[in-house]
Design a binder for these strands. Sequence first.
DNA 1: CAACTTTTTTTGATTGATCAAAATTTCCAA
DNA 2: TTGGAAATTTTGATCAATCAAAAAAAGTTG
Lengths: 223, 223
Amino acid sequence: MPSLTVENYLKTILQICVQTGSEWASTGQIASGLSVSPGTVTSMLKTLSDSSLAKYKPYSGVRLTKQGRMLAVRMLRRHRLLELFLVKTLDLTWDQVHDEAERMEHAVSDELIDRIDQYLGHPEVDPHGDPIPSADGTLSGENAGIPLAETEGGETVRIVRVRNQAPEFLRYLSEHGVALGEVGTVQENSDAGGIVSVQMPEKLVTLGQAAAEMLYVERVTAD
Amino acid sequence: MPSLTVENYLKTILQICVQTGSEWASTGQIASGLSVSPGTVTSMLKTLSDSSLAKYKPYSGVRLTKQGRMLAVRMLRRHRLLELFLVKTLDLTWDQVHDEAERMEHAVSDELIDRIDQYLGHPEVDPHGDPIPSADGTLSGENAGIPLAETEGGETVRIVRVRNQAPEFLRYLSEHGVALGEVGTVQENSDAGGIVSVQMPEKLVTLGQAAAEMLYVERVTAD
DNA sequence: CAACTTTTTTTGATTGATCAAAATTTCCAA
DNA sequence: TTGGAAATTTTGATCAATCAAAAAAAGTTG
């Protein structure tokens, strides 16, 4: 029922809320998230409000309604299941699936998504470690892990999530031995130098601060 | 580059041409194929002409250009590969895949389609027996088989294609033992009664004339 | 708190896809 | 060959999504 455009607005709003930890998303955030002009966003926010998918408060932003949030979560679920499906069936790599899923998520039925979920055995995370919402609309695990940037030299960490879908970034990681589930030891985290380096099983990888903010890890306790 | 709408027009035009064996498709045929009004078609035909995807001749219809035909064939290829992919990976049945593929075909990249083609081992036909165009745009095998309606009592035939995607029709066939590749014996083809009946390995199936025109078979010579 | 900056909204326009209904052209049959 | 009937095109309108640029509101800072 909702257009592809509406689906994209809802998803973007939800992602902003998750990332900022707020209930509200501003016109400007949405505009830059979708690469459209602010004026376009304003008019779409009114449309969303009219269809009870969000509550729009002029000059403040929007907040998803239960219904809108449900739809947005469903888009996230579709996107993430599709990504994993492409990786599992066709052996695509984590840098190849985002754009593909971005378009496909608007084209598949709920029934197909549930089939895929079942085929994959109800997975918890997608190829980037992003949690997959359950069929009933529950979105949990969005807070797992901490940015690599917050760790210190000497710590042993497991890679659990990459919060940046840029193919070049993902390929850089792969080429330097960084993959989901791998364990490494932080060599150095220097604010002065603006870098973090981690010894992975095979290779040593060094990332800038910005990049280290996007790579999420869990501290591993020797057991 | 071409919009979803343009892709659908091109595909529809190609299908009309294939079905009628003509180079031209009329405004009316396209309008009913796409369930839009004739006036809408007229204006889109001008658009297609302007983008050199088809040649429009007022009151006569359109004819695809080489470029337009290429694109249309590509849509057919996508559609058919997607159908088979869904059947092979997720065990969907032939009555479940058409609508799904119809939407997905606009959302997948050429690269993904080629991956799927490779994964499936370069198949020749989709789950309905429709031939899959090759990557270079060759569409062959569209003339394989003859309608069951043209066979006579006593002939042994192999089911090779179903030219009707209606889920109810396909389910009716499945429920009566008709599946691609199966062999049966025509019991009766009666113009008077308007029915054709075929003894399949498990069951006896009886179809009306119209239905028998949509089910394609090959005569099997005892060997 | 007044002036400047930033953000947001409004305004006016455009584009693509569609429709209904009127006008036109083509076709067929008497 | 002529008078409908059928098919097609034109016309005028609508709707969703977008933009640029002007106007207004909110925020910030000396």
